[in-house]
Nucleic acid binder design. Sequence first.
RNA 1: GGGGGCAUAGCUCAGUUGGUUAGAGCGCUUGCUCGACAAGCAAGAGGUCAUAGGUUCGAAUCCCAUUGUCCCCACCA
Length: 892
Amino acid sequence: MEKNLAKTYDPKSFEERIYARWESKGAFKAYRDPEKKPYTIVMPPPNITGQLHMGHALDQTLQDVLIRWKRMQGFSALWLPGSDHASIATEVKVVEKIRDDEGKTKEELGREEFLKRAWEWKRIYGGLITQQVRKLGNSCDWDRERFTMDEGCNKAVIEFFVRLYERGLIYRGNRMINWCPVCGTSLSDAEVEHEDKNGLYWYFRYPATDGGAGIVVATSRPETMFGDVAIAVHPDDERYKALIGSFVKIPLTEREIPVIADTYPDREKGTGAVKITPAHDMNDFEVGERHNLDKPSCINEDATMNGLAGKYEGMDRFECRKAWVRDLAEAGYLVKTEEKVIPLGGCYRCNSAVEPMLSEQWFVSMKELAVPAIEAAKSGELAHVPDKFEKIYLHWLENIRDWCISRQLWWGHRIPAYYCEECEEMVVSALAPAECSKCGGAMRQDEDALDTWFSSALWPFSTLGWPEKTEDLEYFYPTDVLVTGYDIIFFWVVRMVFSALEATGELPFRYVFVHGLVRDGEGQKMSKSAGNGIDPLEIIDQFGADALRFMLTTGISPGNDMRFKTDRLEASRNFANKLWNASRFVIMNLLDDEGNFKEMAPESPETLNKLRDEDKWIISKVNEAALYVTSVLDKFELALAGQKVYEVIWNELCDWYIELVKGRLYGGSEEEKAVCRYVLVRVLKDVLKMLHPFMPFITEEIWGYLPKEGNSEEFLMLEPWPEHNEALNYEDEVKRIEMAMEAIRNIRNIRAEAEAPPSRKLRAVIYALGDDMECIKAGEEHIRSLANLSDIEFTGDKSNVPEEVMSAVMSRAEVFIPQGDLVDYRAEYDRLSKEKERLSGEIERIGGKLANAGFIGKAPEKIVNDEKEKLAKYKGMLEKVLERLDLAEKKL
RNA sequence: GGGGGCAUAGCUCAGUUGGUUAGAGCGCUUGCUCGACAAGCAAGAGGUCAUAGGUUCGAAUCCCAUUGUCCCCACCA
């Protein structure tokens, strides 16, 4: 193996190798270590039908940053991965496959054979996504990988169902549900997506049975008229008062229905009279209940019309609508039509129009379960980050309705209810009863499966062994944080919370860390149908997983959507490249010709004594960063943390420290070099650790090339997180280096302005007094080399400054470049004028503040003193600027 | 119908309990093959923080209103 890094940063050359090593050496494994505190995250399980998309990449990277950070902090960090069986999506795929391969329907195949095919499908394709997950660098404990339909999860689901049933919180009933005719199953309310669409109101006359004019009613769904059982009007509506109690006929049929009074109709809407179809409309159902009306259905489960529709029987609902409207219009019952925006419900899986239907289904009674879940958020025991999402969570729970959990599907957890073939007996039980306890008849299990989200809701504890009291459950549960997108708070977060409180008596997690959506470059939602999705695997191939991860976790604030922009990806890749090269520089200076490490000063008080200002400066900066990064990570401010590490590495380590240290490294004594090596390695190691959660691959790869101390772990990912140390804040040294930096910047500025080529060595005169002189003089060597000067003359006497000079005013000194041929008084004058403007403005602003009695009286003392100091500083600078300006003006 | 978010440089976005000369990346201008790096180095230009009020000694930050924009929820007369 080469002893130093390759010349160019090429993530493809090491990312897969490093992941394989981590995994094979068990670096991701979490142990129940009694000496450590647990830190647990369960991964939101991706669907086995899914392809890895940017949403996963974002969601999982956030989790991996947290897990890697906590692991380094010394927690026993468990990130539990898995996948979801995705009832509807998988069943649809398997049905299609059987149709294509064998030309059969699932019914022809039968339940048992179908499930065999489904498991086979899962075996072949279900692992794809977990392979893709590895490419992101995720440090999850694959030995604990779970599947929502594995044996343990199934046991948990059945157990939970039975418990809820026994508590009276699960019931079976004939109620209004959302029906997707294409998927052929019921849906929960959360699975229906509402969308406003352009549609029509048709106004039809329902003639009175006594030959009167009858009543005109508006509807957007004429095909449901066959299921009408009444016309409702508001009891106070003067227009219809007289008609209440009379009968009208459904046009073109012989069915007579009453006109009833109910407060439900809105007098402003339509004609103020509403047709009541209890089997196909939620509100109508309730009206029907209040008035004890029949609830006839006129639409079948496959969305065709049934016998009630007479000659339209067998027609599709939308075809029927067309024919029926045409016939009514021809017969003169159509009064008018009106264009209208109509909110339509669509299936969240297949997007087809959902039909509200009356159906026999299983429900979870929500009111009681919601109470503790609401309480947990209100008391602060459950915290949303950012907290604005708590409102969404609460609003949903406070308006919750019963949850329809049965699905007319085979792929899923089969409902543990058994019906006697002989009598009416029904039993809910974890174990299949051998026979009916009442009549001894044979028992038949309910045909339906449970909503996928019913099993997802148990994920934080079913995966740890519940309902058994396993050691894992004992140690790792409750989990610490749940990371997810705001789009599935309703589907998942809410349900996990009330399920966990009910099943385990504890919250499933302390924090809900919510992130936004990854949108495309134009801000559009990425979707398969729009074809604007960006494949994370392609991005990784092109830029490396580290660049993708860094891009996804920085430059955004929690909970907000982000646009996927290639330029930010490139910037992240460039940053990785920068770190790569800086590391190459460090390693290059550590190695001798044979590729062995040269002597390095040891970690000792003697070494500490040999540190120069710049060494202490960079150590202070890194130390300061450790404090900041840790504190913002504690607040889930990942972007701020990543940004800070970026700045330390690029703007402080690379831009300054490496440049400042080159003199000693190339021309210093062996002892000095050994000290430099010590500082470089120490600082590099610390920044690698801090960057590691964000960019695990490159940091681990570089780590492998660095010299290890005796007790070091094999992997960077298992090293301890850098601790802030108050003793490492070297204030005086920092001041001296920063003053040198200010001088260097000013001289470079003059150089650029005077158009002196960078290669030309200049002379400089620096004027300062007292402590300021001491301070700036300490940086002489740095100023000379980084500003490319031939020599510097320090003076405390302005009369020593030559007349033909370019000048710059610093806060505590002045620098002069006395090369006559470079002097451009016009430029000098313009720049100084600008500087004068700026300083005068500041002085005026601060002066105003300090003249304000309110400010002096009420602002904190520190703020007032800071302002006073600033004022003095600016005044001193302005004085010098005016002096130079005066000179420049005379020369013009 | 109800609720929420957002509005800061040409673009994409940070700005953590109110107090710095309001920042970054990209883009733009100018100059650089000096022994880590052109995926780079150096120096710059560019913002009345949507608008109008209010609170405060002090507002990009807190409150109210307006405008624009995006989203969520809601039983399709």
